[in-house]
Amino acid sequence: MENIPIIELKEIRKSFFIGNREIEVLKGINIKIYEKESIAIIGQSGSGKTTLMNIIGCMDRATSGTYLFKGKDITTFNDDELSSFRNESIGFVFQQFHLIPYINALDNVILPTIYSKKNIDNVKQKAISLLTELGMHDRIYNKPTQLSGGQQQRVAIARALINDPEIILADEPTGALDTKTSSEIMDILTSLNEKGKTIIIITHEQEIANRCKKIIRISDGKIV
């Protein structure tokens, strides 16, 4: 088991059409990510790192290439299968937090369980303990607008963890936060990795990338 990567990307290419012009954003990416790793994918804007993240997170499909998850080819999954895959295996953390504005912190954390086939007992209890662990015990019933950026990102991390996914996929998780809050959020993410979660962080900041055990640098659609 040890030598099978949790994620293996082979020759992943992605192109977009702008008018009639085909623009290749990813030009043959090969990555192997093993369980319990923490990986930073670093690149300047326009390097294709967001597109890569969308493909790793199964929000988007590659134009060509193969995506193996625990050795299983998921390139052929249909829309519903991809949705279930995201639900069970990926926990997203976004730069702009992306909480649903009209429901409170607790309901935002519970959100992924709504679409889960697993019948988790005491979902509410689990969500509350996750929020408590992240120091949010007195903000459980607050709406996102009543929370600071750092607090919103903590709620978002709790949401990413609720379904026990194999991978936490964080896209510029500190991009909208000040330096102090950034390091707090990074502390949380690295401690999650220490507890055994596979963490993938997309960033353009070297400092953030340095907190990860492995750094993959991407430039102009290629790994360098």
Binding site: M59, S83, F92, H98, I100, L111, P112, I114, Y115
Partner: peptide, 16 residues
């Protein structure tokens, strides 16, 4: 649309 994107990211199928 952002809300719909969030729901989709966390596993909502089209039918949901």
């Amino acid at each position: 649309s952002s809300e719909i994107g969030i729901r989709r990211a966390f596993g909502a199928k089209k039918n949901h």
